[in-house]
């Protein structure tokens, strides 16, 4: 599968990555080469093979529905780019 500039722009939007126009051709080239590599998978017959999501066949462990975490908001907000009155600040969302 070969990706063109429009497709790269669409994927970049889905990934929330700003890409400069001048970098789009290089991404298109690299991503197409990577997809060409991964398409070597098509040589394998996988009809009826159960997909393997996880290396160990284990059930997801559950824990009791109990509060285990203390409130560390101030601790965590100390490393935030911008906070005010315990809130994370971002640009205005609603005009």
């Amino acid at each position: 599968m070969s990706l063109g500039p429009a497709e790269v722009a669409k994927i970049a939007h889905l990934a929330r990555l700003a890409i400069r126009d001048e970098d789009v051709p290089a991404y298109a080239r690299n991503l197409s080469a990577i997809l060409e590599l991964v398409e070597q998978m098509n040589a394998a017959d996988t009809a009826g093979v159960a997909p393997m999501a996880h290396p160990l066949d284990m059930a997801q462990r559950l824990r009791a529905d109990a509060v285990t975490e203390p409130d560390q908001r101030a601790h965590f907000q100390a490393i935030a780019p911008r906070v005010e009155s315990g809130l994370y600040l971002v640009p205005k969302v609603i005009e």
Partner: peptide, 24 residues
């Protein structure tokens, strides 16, 4: 995403710009 920790771009004009430029 530039909101809770890590790098944030300067002067984001809206939320999408904050996400995409911080990540870029």
């Amino acid at each position: 995403d530039g909101v809770r920790y890590g790098h944030r771009c300067e002067d984001p004009k809206d939320l999408l710009d904050l996400y995409t430029r911080s990540r870029a």
